[in-house]
């Protein structure tokens, strides 16, 4: 019998898989702007996982900080420095 707890854990497991993929793309990407976007996608998935793990207060803090402010600060940093990572 599949209850709400099992469905919740299953959705969390799926989201964890997607966040692993987003992290891998952020590690291998040479364009830093794209890497920041992958990092923001990964943060969105993490916010979803926090919601699934019964932490709505963390979601309220995490969405503006990790999806909004982190990429904004790093994008300003890239604009003031350089964009491409060379081999």
């Amino acid at each position: 019998m599949i209850g709400p707890m099992e469905i919740m854990i299953g959705i969390t497991a799926l989201a964890a898989l997607f966040s692993t993929a987003a992290t891998y793309l952020a590690v291998t990407e040479k364009d830093l702007v794209k890497a920041v976007i992958y990092s923001a996608i990964q943060s969105t998935i993490y916010a979803f996982i926090y919601y699934m793990l019964m932490a709505p207060d963390i979601v309220l803090v995490y969405i503006p900080v990790a999806v909004g402010l982190y990429p904004a600060v790093i994008l300003v940093l890239i604009r003031k420095t350089e964009r491409w990572e060379k081999d």
């Binding site: 952020a26 830093l32 920041v36 990092s39 790093i74 940093l77 890239i78 420095t81 990572e85 060379k86």
Partner: peptide
């Protein structure tokens, strides 16, 4: 090798 990439990965690690 790039320091901004290291910073992005540091934020992912802390999260």
């Amino acid at each position: 090798p790039h320091l901004v990439k290291k910073l992005i990965l540091l934020s992912i690690l802390s999260d």
